[in-house]
Simulated assay, not measured.
Amino acid sequence: MAVVKRMPQKTGRIRTERVRLILKAAEQEFALNGYKGATVQRIADLANLPKPNVLYYFSNKQEIYDEVLNNILNLWNDKLNEFHPEDDPAESLERYIRSKVEVSRKYPTASRIFASEIIHGGQQLSSSMKTSTQEWVKNKVDIFQHWMDEGKMAHIEPMHLIFLIWGSTQHYADYEKQICWVMKKKKLPASEYEKAADTICNIVLRGCGLKA
Protein backbone atom coordinates (compact mmCIF):
# COMPACT_ATOMS: atom_id res chain seq x y z
CA MET A 1 0.00 0.00 0.00
CA ALA A 2 1.37 3.40 -0.96
CA VAL A 3 2.13 5.86 1.82
CA VAL A 4 0.01 9.01 1.63
CA LYS A 5 2.07 12.13 2.31
CA ARG A 6 0.06 14.79 4.15
CA MET A 7 2.78 17.37 4.68
CA PRO A 8 1.73 19.58 1.71
CA GLN A 9 -1.80 19.90 3.16
CA LYS A 10 -0.39 20.95 6.53
CA THR A 11 1.97 23.38 4.83
CA GLY A 12 -0.94 24.77 2.84
CA ARG A 13 -2.99 25.34 5.98
CA ILE A 14 -0.07 27.04 7.71
CA ARG A 15 0.49 29.30 4.72
CA THR A 16 -3.19 30.22 4.50
CA GLU A 17 -3.36 31.06 8.20
CA ARG A 18 -0.16 33.12 8.18
CA VAL A 19 -1.21 35.08 5.12
CA ARG A 20 -4.56 35.76 6.80
CA LEU A 21 -2.79 37.03 9.93
CA ILE A 22 -0.44 39.21 7.89
CA LEU A 23 -3.25 40.80 5.89
CA LYS A 24 -5.35 41.40 9.00
CA ALA A 25 -2.38 43.09 10.67
CA ALA A 26 -1.66 45.04 7.49
CA GLU A 27 -5.20 46.44 7.47
CA GLN A 28 -4.68 47.79 10.98
CA GLU A 29 -1.28 49.26 10.13
CA PHE A 30 -2.34 50.89 6.84
CA ALA A 31 -5.53 52.24 8.41
CA LEU A 32 -3.57 53.82 11.26
CA ASN A 33 -0.48 55.11 9.44
CA GLY A 34 -1.33 55.14 5.73
CA TYR A 35 0.83 53.56 3.07
CA LYS A 36 3.80 55.90 3.51
CA GLY A 37 3.86 55.67 7.30
CA ALA A 38 3.31 51.92 7.51
CA THR A 39 6.24 49.55 8.01
CA VAL A 40 6.68 45.83 7.43
CA GLN A 41 8.14 45.53 10.93
CA ARG A 42 4.98 46.86 12.58
CA ILE A 43 2.86 44.59 10.39
CA ALA A 44 4.97 41.66 11.57
CA ASP A 45 4.62 42.76 15.20
CA LEU A 46 0.83 43.03 14.89
CA ALA A 47 0.70 39.58 13.28
CA ASN A 48 2.98 38.15 16.01
CA LEU A 49 5.35 36.88 13.34
CA PRO A 50 9.04 37.51 12.69
CA LYS A 51 9.64 40.05 9.93
CA PRO A 52 11.44 37.43 7.74
CA ASN A 53 8.26 35.31 7.85
CA VAL A 54 6.22 38.21 6.49
CA LEU A 55 8.77 38.80 3.73
CA TYR A 56 8.67 35.10 2.89
CA TYR A 57 5.03 35.45 1.81
CA PHE A 58 5.21 39.02 0.49
CA SER A 59 8.27 40.55 -1.14
CA ASN A 60 7.73 44.06 0.20
CA LYS A 61 5.24 46.56 1.64
CA GLN A 62 3.80 47.39 -1.78
CA GLU A 63 2.92 43.76 -2.40
CA ILE A 64 1.11 43.54 0.94
CA TYR A 65 -0.76 46.76 0.20
CA ASP A 66 -1.78 45.53 -3.25
CA GLU A 67 -3.21 42.37 -1.72
CA VAL A 68 -5.21 44.33 0.87
CA LEU A 69 -6.71 46.50 -1.90
CA ASN A 70 -7.36 43.52 -4.16
CA ASN A 71 -9.16 41.71 -1.36
CA ILE A 72 -11.65 44.52 -0.79
CA LEU A 73 -12.24 44.91 -4.54
CA ASN A 74 -12.98 41.19 -4.81
CA LEU A 75 -15.36 41.35 -1.85
CA TRP A 76 -17.19 44.33 -3.36
CA ASN A 77 -17.48 42.90 -6.85
CA ASP A 78 -18.18 39.25 -6.09
CA LYS A 79 -21.98 39.43 -6.30
CA LEU A 80 -22.05 41.69 -9.34
CA ASN A 81 -19.80 39.18 -11.10
CA GLU A 82 -22.84 36.91 -11.05
CA PHE A 83 -24.78 39.32 -13.31
CA HIS A 84 -25.83 37.87 -16.66
CA PRO A 85 -27.93 39.43 -19.44
CA GLU A 86 -30.62 36.78 -18.97
CA ASP A 87 -30.99 37.50 -15.22
CA ASP A 88 -33.76 39.51 -13.59
CA PRO A 89 -32.52 43.11 -13.06
CA ALA A 90 -34.38 43.66 -9.77
CA GLU A 91 -33.09 40.46 -8.18
CA SER A 92 -29.54 41.08 -9.40
CA LEU A 93 -29.40 44.68 -8.18
CA GLU A 94 -30.90 43.85 -4.80
CA ARG A 95 -28.45 40.98 -4.30
CA TYR A 96 -25.53 43.24 -5.16
CA ILE A 97 -26.65 46.12 -2.92
CA ARG A 98 -27.26 43.86 0.07
CA SER A 99 -23.90 42.15 -0.34
CA LYS A 100 -22.13 45.54 -0.55
CA VAL A 101 -23.78 46.75 2.66
CA GLU A 102 -22.82 43.49 4.37
CA VAL A 103 -19.20 43.93 3.28
CA SER A 104 -19.28 47.44 4.75
CA ARG A 105 -20.49 45.97 8.03
CA LYS A 106 -17.93 43.16 8.16
CA TYR A 107 -14.87 44.85 6.62
CA PRO A 108 -15.03 48.60 7.37
CA THR A 109 -11.28 48.98 7.86
CA ALA A 110 -10.41 47.60 4.42
CA SER A 111 -12.99 49.88 2.83
CA ARG A 112 -11.55 52.94 4.58
CA ILE A 113 -8.04 52.04 3.40
CA PHE A 114 -9.25 51.92 -0.19
CA ALA A 115 -11.17 55.20 0.20
CA SER A 116 -8.10 56.90 1.65
CA GLU A 117 -5.97 55.66 -1.24
CA ILE A 118 -8.42 57.12 -3.77
CA ILE A 119 -8.70 60.42 -1.89
CA HIS A 120 -4.92 60.75 -2.00
CA GLY A 121 -4.82 60.26 -5.75
CA GLY A 122 -4.59 56.49 -6.07
CA GLN A 123 -0.83 56.69 -6.61
CA GLN A 124 -0.22 53.26 -5.10
CA LEU A 125 -2.85 51.50 -7.22
CA SER A 126 -1.24 49.21 -9.78
CA SER A 127 -1.99 49.74 -13.46
CA SER A 128 -3.41 46.21 -13.64
CA MET A 129 -5.82 47.00 -10.80
CA LYS A 130 -7.01 50.14 -12.59
CA THR A 131 -7.38 48.31 -15.90
CA SER A 132 -9.27 45.38 -14.38
CA THR A 133 -11.67 47.78 -12.63
CA GLN A 134 -12.31 49.64 -15.89
CA GLU A 135 -13.00 46.36 -17.69
CA TRP A 136 -15.24 45.17 -14.86
CA VAL A 137 -17.32 48.37 -14.98
CA LYS A 138 -17.62 48.23 -18.78
CA ASN A 139 -18.91 44.66 -18.59
CA LYS A 140 -21.62 45.63 -16.07
CA VAL A 141 -22.54 48.74 -18.07
CA ASP A 142 -23.09 46.52 -21.12
CA ILE A 143 -25.43 44.27 -19.10
CA PHE A 144 -27.40 47.24 -17.78
CA GLN A 145 -27.65 48.59 -21.33
CA HIS A 146 -28.93 45.22 -22.53
CA TRP A 147 -31.65 45.25 -19.87
CA MET A 148 -32.64 48.78 -20.89
CA ASP A 149 -32.73 47.87 -24.59
CA GLU A 150 -34.94 44.89 -23.72
CA GLY A 151 -37.31 47.14 -21.77
CA LYS A 152 -36.53 45.37 -18.49
CA MET A 153 -35.54 48.56 -16.68
CA ALA A 154 -35.79 52.32 -17.12
CA HIS A 155 -33.29 54.15 -19.30
CA ILE A 156 -30.67 55.69 -17.04
CA GLU A 157 -26.93 56.28 -17.24
CA PRO A 158 -25.60 52.83 -16.19
CA MET A 159 -22.11 53.93 -15.17
CA HIS A 160 -23.50 56.53 -12.78
CA LEU A 161 -25.84 53.89 -11.37
CA ILE A 162 -22.77 51.87 -10.41
CA PHE A 163 -21.15 54.95 -8.85
CA LEU A 164 -24.37 55.64 -6.91
CA ILE A 165 -24.44 52.11 -5.49
CA TRP A 166 -20.76 52.25 -4.61
CA GLY A 167 -21.13 55.54 -2.76
CA SER A 168 -24.31 54.71 -0.86
CA THR A 169 -23.19 51.27 0.31
CA GLN A 170 -19.57 52.11 1.14
CA HIS A 171 -20.71 55.15 3.12
CA TYR A 172 -21.60 52.82 5.98
CA ALA A 173 -17.97 51.73 6.25
CA ASP A 174 -16.09 54.90 5.36
CA TYR A 175 -18.26 57.19 7.52
CA GLU A 176 -19.28 54.71 10.20
CA LYS A 177 -18.08 57.00 13.00
CA GLN A 178 -20.12 59.92 11.69
CA ILE A 179 -23.24 57.75 11.42
CA CYS A 180 -22.79 56.48 14.98
CA TRP A 181 -22.29 60.03 16.23
CA VAL A 182 -25.45 61.30 14.50
CA MET A 183 -27.50 58.30 15.67
CA LYS A 184 -26.03 58.50 19.19
CA LYS A 185 -24.78 54.93 19.08
CA LYS A 186 -21.41 53.54 20.12
CA LYS A 187 -21.60 50.89 17.41
CA LEU A 188 -24.03 50.46 14.55
CA PRO A 189 -26.00 47.22 15.09
CA ALA A 190 -26.70 44.73 12.32
CA SER A 191 -30.35 45.80 12.29
CA GLU A 192 -29.35 49.30 11.13
CA TYR A 193 -27.34 47.86 8.27
CA GLU A 194 -30.42 45.88 7.27
CA LYS A 195 -32.48 49.08 7.30
CA ALA A 196 -29.81 50.79 5.21
CA ALA A 197 -29.86 47.96 2.66
CA ASP A 198 -33.68 48.07 2.54
CA THR A 199 -33.63 51.83 1.95
CA ILE A 200 -30.94 51.77 -0.74
CA CYS A 201 -32.66 48.87 -2.53
CA ASN A 202 -35.99 50.70 -2.43
CA ILE A 203 -34.55 53.93 -3.86
CA VAL A 204 -32.39 52.28 -6.54
CA LEU A 205 -34.98 49.79 -7.75
CA ARG A 206 -37.74 52.38 -7.94
CA GLY A 207 -35.38 54.77 -9.72
CA CYS A 208 -34.67 52.04 -12.26
CA GLY A 209 -38.39 51.48 -12.82
CA LEU A 210 -38.27 48.13 -11.03
CA LYS A 211 -40.53 46.69 -8.37
CA ALA A 212 -38.94 47.12 -4.94
Rank of each mutant, 00 (worst) to 15 (best):
1 M>W: 08
4 V>N: 05
5 K>A: 14
6 R>N: 14
12 G>W: 06
13 R>F: 10
18 R>N: 15
18 R>D: 15
21 L>A: 13
24 K>Q: 13
26 A>L: 09
27 E>F: 08
28 Q>C: 07
30 F>G: 00
33 N>Q: 10
36 K>T: 15
37 G>R: 08
38 A>H: 01
40 V>N: 08
41 Q>V: 11
42 R>Q: 13
48 N>T: 13
52 P>Q: 06
53 N>E: 15
54 V>Q: 03
55 L>W: 05
56 Y>P: 01
57 Y>G: 07
57 Y>F: 15
57 Y>W: 12
59 S>W: 09
59 S>Y: 12
60 N>L: 04
61 K>W: 02
64 I>C: 05
67 E>W: 08
67 E>I: 11
71 N>C: 14
72 I>K: 01
78 D>E: 15
79 K>Y: 13
81 N>D: 15
83 F>G: 09
84 H>P: 03
84 H>Q: 14
89 P>G: 09
89 P>K: 07
91 E>F: 14
91 E>G: 11
94 E>F: 01
95 R>I: 10
98 R>K: 11
101 V>R: 00
107 Y>I: 06
111 S>G: 10
113 I>L: 06
114 F>E: 01
115 A>L: 10
120 H>D: 11
125 L>P: 11
129 M>C: 12
132 S>T: 12
133 T>P: 07
143 I>P: 09
144 F>Y: 03
147 W>N: 02
151 G>K: 06
151 G>N: 02
156 I>M: 09
157 E>A: 13
157 E>F: 11
161 L>G: 01
162 I>Y: 05
165 I>K: 02
166 W>V: 07
169 T>Y: 01
173 A>R: 00
186 K>N: 15
190 A>P: 03
193 Y>K: 04
195 K>M: 11
197 A>Y: 00
200 I>N: 00
200 I>K: 02
202 N>G: 06
202 N>V: 03
210 L>M: 01
210 L>F: 00
211 K>N: 14
212 A>F: 09
